[in-house]
Each structure stands twice: as C-alpha cells, then as structure tokens.
Design a protein around this nucleic acid. Structure first.
Length: 487
RNA sequence: GGCCCCAUCGUCUAGCCAGGUCAGGACACCGCCCUUUCAAGGCGGCAGCACGGGUUCGAAUCCCGUUGGGGCCA
C-alpha cells in the first residue's frame, strides 16, 4: 500500500536523477559509507544522473582538512567520481540559519530554554516512571512573558521542531517497502543548537532540498530519522519527497556491528593491505545486492548496467575479508604484467626493496607473471621476490635442505655455467638432465637449488626465477650457499 | 523502557511478492587430479530454510506467535 496520500506527499518528478553521499570527515571513509557511495554512484551513472559529494562537518570538533582530504582520496581511489561538490556544511551556515528562521516564523519551530542538565533530570524521571524519554514539550507553549523571563535570566535557547500531533508519516522505501510512522512516536527535536549551529536533521534536510537530491540511498541506521526529515520538508512548504532506499547495515564476520574494535573498517586500511580498488568495488557491490543466483564477478561497467535498488536485500551483510581476498586474487591475476608491476612498487618500497627505479621496475615486470597467480594481496609480493633484489640469507629450512649438498650444487653450477643461453626452458632442460643422470626425483633435485638461490623453500617457479635472477648471480649463489651454512 | 527492522549452508546469496523442480551458485573447509616448492586450475564432497503453531492436497515461500540479532529515540 502506498500511504503517501495520507500526508499529501508526492514523489519528486524531477527528470534528472541526483544522488549524493554525505560522509562526516573523520578520517578515511568507512567501508559502510564506501558501499553507500558505490550504490549511489552506480545508480546515478546508470541513469545518466548527477552524483553529489557533501561533507557533513557541522560537528566542528571532528572537522578538519586532512580528514576531508582522506575522503576525497578514498573515493577517487575507488573510482567513484562525483559531479558536484564537495560541498562543506560548515560553509553553508546561513542556509540552515535562514531555514530555521523560516520554521520559527511559520510556527513550526520554537525556542527551548531547557538546559542539558534539566533535560537529563526530566528524562531520567520519565524513564523511571515508565514514560518515554523524549522531550516533554516544556517550552512548547511559552508565552512572550515567559520567554522574556528566561532570557532575562541569561538563558540561551535551542530551536525545536514542533512535531504535529495525530499525524501519520508514510513513505515507500525501495528496499524496505512501506514505512509508516505515527507522529506520537516523535518528540519535538532540536534543529538548531544553542550555539546557533544546525543539527544533523536540519542540515541534511536543507541540503537534500537545495541540492535537489532525488534519490536518498543510505544506511538503515538513518531509516528512523526519515519521517523527521519529511516533516521538516513539509514545514518548509515542500510537498514532494525524494525516493528513499535504506541499505541493510554491514556487520563484522561474527555478526556484531562493524566497529573499529573489530578490525579494519576504513577503506584506507584495505588499500594499504594491497587490495585493488576494482576488487573492493566488486565485493562491496555484492554486500547486500545480487544480480542472479550465480554471477560473482562484475566489472564496473557491468555493475553500472546491471545494478538495481530493487534487488538490494533487507538483511544485514557480514563483511568477509576472506571472500574479498579471493576476489582480489582474481583481479590481480587479470592485470597486465606492467600494470601489476607498477602497483607493486609502493608495496616493495615500503618493505625496503628498491623497486622504484628503472631497473627495479624491469625486474618487477619480469617477475609479475610468475607471482600474479600466487597473490591474494599486493603486500604479499615483497617476500616472494626479495631474492631478486639483493643477497639472500638462507632461512632454517633452506639451510637444512642444502646440508651436505655442496657437491651437487657445484655440479649444478657447472652445468648452468656451460649453458650457451639463459632462458627458462634451457635451464629446465639442463637441470632435468642432471637430475636424470643422478637418479634424483624432481623434488630432490630442485629444492636444494631453490634453497640456495632464493633462500627459502617456497618461491616462484624455479627455472623462470633463475632466468630473471641472471646467470652470474645464480651461479654465485649456488657456490656460496654451502659455505654460508657450514656447521 | 518505547517504536521499528531483520531471519535460507560458517559467510555472501538465488529462490519468497504471483505456494508444487533432489533448496541453486560463490567463498571457506575436506578429498582426489595436476605438479620442482607455494599457488593457480580441474573434478568431487561436507554443509542451510531459527523454533512452534495455523492456512493448504502441498509451505523456504502466505498468516500468527516465540526466540535470536540489529537500528532508532535520550
């Protein structure tokens, strides 16, 4: 049932779709916000609409330039480009003030002189008496004399919205269906603080209105605030409402709310761990939305084409890093060697590998095909390829493996030294021939070589690794390794 | 405390609205194959409709309740 008629509201009829994302500037963007941003972005792109970025920084304490910069960077990294903004709420104070003023003039808002302490006391008393804790309406019908008295006392005031009685607010949520709220459930709420600053409720309503937002796609935590925003719109003389779509909340893998105490909740943390933005986007899209019963991999283009709010689910989705890693591995495998190499550079540098040079990049491009199918995250690469960039120290297992193998390794070195060329296949042929002569199983024949050359028993494919390492270095390591572990 | 929301394998989910195919796919896990290590890949397996009523010839699907989880209000 559509109950919009009950409050005389109609859906907006603007032809151009306009969506927005409105994060608070508290550092790197939260994955929940990132998902909301993605859905808004996909929806606007799909409809050739406009995607607006707005920074909700009215809470001055948390607002700072660096934090807002982090949001911009994160969105850019994800590829979620916006068409308008960023608009800072902190620079739109006059808009909220004038809206508040209009509401007061029209009798939809009033001055409340209650102090926080008084409110707290009365709230506790109400709860103790089994009554609802919301505002009790003390200042709702103050006379001019009473107001003058309070002000003579030096009291400051906040502005409260006068919630109409006996009304039903209804709207159709694309995700949740009809949502009906009785105004008896809503107590008069503050729209302007005593310091003159707007509350979230006022700011978001004024902004969505003035920015002509047609589709509000946001987290379910804001579902309950929607009737109040509709009330403010209405009081401001607006008779239509945007389309609302409240997304299911994201929870952690144990089903608890996603919080900083649980683990990584910021996009930046995933970026630093070596996740690709394309994998992140694909994974986020699947958290709460599905296209059919079998498709998991979606390019951004496919998402733009296939995404639909109607297919967003209602139940909370658990953020599963393991599945994200699987997806990330798939995207890494699809990268061109040069692309992978370039993305690897910062991770190598961070791990102390001098890859940020022409020769370093050459090595990375060469080794990229060998490690791409072994990576789930970019930050796993340095340990796999370190042996290419400098001397190696044999780890415990590697040392043990070359124990008593000095003669064999010397033979290997000799055989390789005699090689006319230095390609993987040539190296492989020579080493297999030597193994056959000595009746060695592949594992017996190759693990000591791997140990001596890479310093570990786990490495990229041996022959290609030797090829990239180079003939001289390879032979040097084969000869030197036994000495390094003399017991 | 009040109002509201949600409920299919461990996880993401398809199926639900318009009841009737062994409840389908993916991640993870286990096994086998491939194999110079580690991966990747191939094949196979384990595993679910929260519970209780009701409606119906028939319920994952519709209704009610219970339980569990969550959100908001301050």
């Amino acid at each position: 049932m559509t109950l919009s008629a009950a409050v005389n509201l109609t859906q907006m009829t603007t032809s151009v779709v306009r969506t927005r994302i409105a994060p608070a500037p508290s550092g790197s963007i939260h994955v929940g916000n990132a998902r909301a941003a993605l859905y808004n972005w996909l929806f606007s792109r799909q409809n050739q609409g406009v995607f607006v970025l707005r920074i909700e920084d009215t809470d001055q304490k948390r607002a700072d330039e660096a934090a807002y910069g982090a949001i911009v960077e994160d969105l850019e990294w994800l590829g979620l480009t916006w068409d308008e903004g960023p608009f800072l709420q902190s620079k739109r104070a006059e808009h909220y003030a004038s809206a508040a003023e209009r509401l007061v003039e029209m009798g939809s808002a009033y001055r409340c002189y209650c102090t926080p302490e008084e409110l707290d006391t009365r709230r506790k008393a109400a709860m103790a008496a089994g009554r609802p804790p919301g505002y009790d309406g003390r200042c709702r019908y103050l006379s001019a004399e009473e107001r003058a008295a309070f002000e003579a006392e030096g009291r400051t005031f906040a502005l409260r919205f006068r919630v109409p009685e006996n009304r039903t607010i209804a709207f159709d949520d694309v995700v949740r269906g009809p949502v009906v709220t009785d105004t008896a459930q809503i107590s008069d709420f503050v729209i302007q603080r005593s310091d003159g600053g707007p509350t979230y409720m006022l700011a978001v309503t004024v902004d969505d209105l003035e920015m002509d937002i047609t589709h509000v796609i946001r987290g379910e935590d804001l579902l309950a605030s929607t009737p109040r925003q509709i009330l403010i719109r209405e009081a401001l003389g607006v008779t239509d409402v945007p389309v609302f779509a409240h997304l299911p909340l994201l929870v952690s893998s144990d089903g608890r709310p996603l919080s900083k105490r649980w683990g990584d909740v910021s996009v930046r943390a995933y970026r630093d761990a070596g996740f690709l933005p394309e994998a992140m986007v694909n994974y986020l899209a699947l958290l709460g939305w599905s296209f059919d019963d079998k498709t998991n991999i979606f390019s951004v283009e496919e998402l733009v084409e296939k995404f639909s709010l109607e297919r967003v689910g209602k139940n909370p989705a658990a953020f599963d890093v393991v599945k994200l890693e699987w997806l990330n591995g798939i995207y890494i495998k699809q990268l061109e060697p040069s692309d992978l190499a370039e993305r690897l550079v910062p991770f190598c540098v961070r791990a102390g590998i001098d890859a940020d040079s022409e020769s370093g990049r050459r090595l990375l491009v060469a080794v990229a095909p060998l490690i791409s199918e072994r990576l789930k995250r970019l930050d796993e690469a340095p340990s796999m390829i370190r042996f290419l960039f400098g001397p190696v120290t044999l780890d415990e297992k590697a040392s043990k493996t070359i124990q008593g193998q000095a003669e064999y390794l010397r033979a290997v070195a000799d055989r390789l030294a005699a090689l006319p060329g230095w390609t993987g296949p040539q190296i492989e042929a020579a080493l297999r021939e030597l193994a056959a002569e000595r009746f060695l199983k592949p594992k017996q024949a190759f693990q000591p070589i791997r140990a001596a050359v890479t310093g570990t028993l786990i490495s990229p494919p041996l022959f290609e690794s030797l090829e990239i390492l180079g003939k001289d270095t390879s032979i040097d390591r084969l000869m030197a390794a036994p000495q390094s572990v003399v017991v």
